[in-house]
Design a protein around this nucleic acid. Structure first.
Lengths: 359, 359
DNA sequence: GCGGGGGATGTGAGCGATAACATCCCGTCC
DNA sequence: GGACGGGATGTTATCGCTCACATCCCCCGC
């Protein structure tokens, strides 16, 4: 009489008092329900080839015992994946943090676990390094590539990884390539520039955010596009960073120049810094100078003056990127169609008609 | 000599062309190095009982093959942990996002993987639910409990989980309890209030952020403490939310009251909203009305007027919380002593002497 | 009445590591 | 010179789960 019920291989013959904290496993459920562990596995994974009666009983036992599948074991055994690692370079950047939130939401809805691994500029980012950040080889990856570190990670990622990214612009070289979600910043910047030109400004200056791509960002290109299309030469862009402080520092000189009547900034933080520089230089906004941001940060509607900006749907973008990855993993997964909202111009107080030219 | 090299149990006798993508495992290293998998494991885990020569050879092979231990397998087998799940309710709140960053930094330094699970208000948060979010039972947890959802999660967490939290205030009931990291908001708010009273304001109003605890937050208490200590009755607090918009809405009425000359806000976003409300009501800041924030968000130094606020070291707090957890897991882990910086009053333009009383 | 299909289940072999215990080897000590 | 002791390694059992394949059973058709 070795086994009345198919005993768990290593089941201790003693009573259950022994182990302090072992959680209920698939075997426990199987034993109570009087089926094999594999049947339980089938029920848990929704296999169709289980008789209804059996399935119901197993479900009942699962509920009764409070069984939760162990993600680790599942992944180890090579089952369905259900986890993503997000590679991002800064969880506090407005766009990145929203994208992360979007990813997390979508992932949770799909019952995926989300790991976050932060890239700093010093990390090597060889394929090996990236692989080392994963919970297990072959785990799906989402990269938030809004800046150089993110972009590098995205490039470093071996092509055979299941991965998707939120990027500033699609990679043309890898056209065959991997799924990427992006916002049409270029068009949005062009629209913003046209809007400013339409107000009568002779030209529009642009302050850059550090771009993920080597030379110029999408926003800068859109700005240049619009200027060129309107027959205006593009002035030299101003190098900004991400913070209000960097905007302030970069703007101090230019803002004093009366020839400059409109500045489009790569994000709202920069715009805020420029706003302050303008005020210190004694220029009225928007009377003497129009200042425009990008992103529509929550505070943009409450600064003084309130910021004209472009609203970007970073959260939707994150959700979309996850959706793409999800579909990549299994084409069954419906790609939610209207993935994210288009950029939208939000006109507030910081921009206005060009001043009368006195020169 | 039964087996020249101890073959891996299920090793396919065919050549290695078969499997496409299996990563190198401990067995592969063992075979190449001519030792048992266990010896490799010992080397990887720094066990002292391996001869130097052996260790060196194994390390060499590890390097040559690019072997990386599989976290999943490691965890499954009950080895050292090296992963944390962070429970947070909103990755975009300033404090929470910084705390998350701090946690991630510290975790990475300790070679821990970080998972993030976002709590929404609707999640049930029974112990079972929390357990379901973990990669595996017994995984360490860090809770960012700045608001109600986070606080609920922290309470719901069974006491036998290895866990730590970043909280608004220590839980007195569970005094025996679990490690918690917090900033002395109460003292900071009291200090802020005293500062305002010192400017000659007859009283100070307070606008709350949604508190994690049932009735009032730490900041509100500190404010009340200071008022009481100075012999002033505390006016009814204003209910704010987290956003500039909510601050604006909540302030519109009060701000018109000339009796109100100083408002301390639960965070900078609220202060920004109040600032706008004040401007719309025609009140000069800081001439007629002093407005003060909390947090020292990056933009606070660039608003108009710039915001007097309290700088809080959320990032350090996150690092500290991880440190506590790390030590909890293994007392060996040195508790980095100066865990985080104390709150610091940052005086800028939005506060000033009380106006002369005309009434 | 019997060989065939399937559907419903069970069995056994790993996944990649660690823990616990079993060996092996070699220098010491009596 | 042999038993002893301990460091260096090897072996085996597990962790909790999924795969691939083996069974088993029942119903159908000729």
């Amino acid at each position: 009489m070795q086994k009345p019920t198919p005993d768990r291989p290593g089941e201790a013959p003693s009573e259950q008092g022994g182990d302090r904290h072992r959680s209920v496993s698939i075997w426990d459920v199987a034993k109570v329900a009087g089926v094999s562990h594999q049947t339980v596995s089938r029920v848990v994974n929704g296999s169709p080839r289980v008789k209804k009666a059996t399935r119901d009983r197993v479900l009942e036992v699962i509920d009764e015992l409070g069984y939760k599948p162990n993600r680790l074991a599942r992944a180890l055994a090579g089952g369905v994946v259900r986890s993503v690692t997000v590679l991002t370079s800064d969880t506090t950047l407005y766009g990145a943090s929203l994208a992360l939130r979007g990813i997390e939401e979508a992932a949770r809805a799909a019952d995926f676990a989300v790991s976050v691994s932060v890239l700093d500029d010093s990390s090597p980012l060889t394929p090996d390094d990236v692989a080392g950040r994963l919970a297990r080889p072959g785990e799906p990856v989402l990269v938030i590539a809004f800046n150089a570190a993110g972009e590098r990670a995205w490039r470093a990622l071996p092509a055979d990884f299941p991965a998707a990214a939120v990027v500033e612009r699609p990679q043309e070289e890898h056209a065959g390539g991997r799924p990427e979600a992006w916002l049409d910043d270029r068009a949005a910047a062009a629209q913003a520039t046209r809007y400013l030109l339409g107000l009568g400004h002779h030209t529009v200056h642009y302050m850059t955010i550090p771009s993920s791509t080597t030379r110029v960002g999408q926003r800068a290109e859109g700005w240049r596009d619009a200027l060129t299309a309107a027959g205006h030469p593009a002035p030299e862009p101003l190098d900004g960073g991400w913070s209000p402080r960097s905007g302030y520092l970069a703007a101090r000189r230019v803002v004093a120049d009366p020839q400059v009547t409109a500045v489009l900034c790569g994000n709202d933080d920069l715009a805020l810094g420029v706003l302050r520089a303008a005020r210190e230089a004694g220029r009225d906004v928007p009377g003497d100078l129009s200042i425009m941001g990008f992103d529509d940060a929550p505070y943009a509607a409450y600064t003084h003056p309130t910021l004209t900006t472009v609203r970007l749907d970073f959260e939707g973008l994150g959700r979309g990127a996850f959706g793409m990855l999800h579909r990549l993993l299994d084409p069954e997964n419906a790609p939610v169609l209207p993935l994210w909202a288009e950029p939208e111009l939000i006109v507030r107080e910081s921009t206005g008609p060009a001043p009368h030219r006195t020169a």
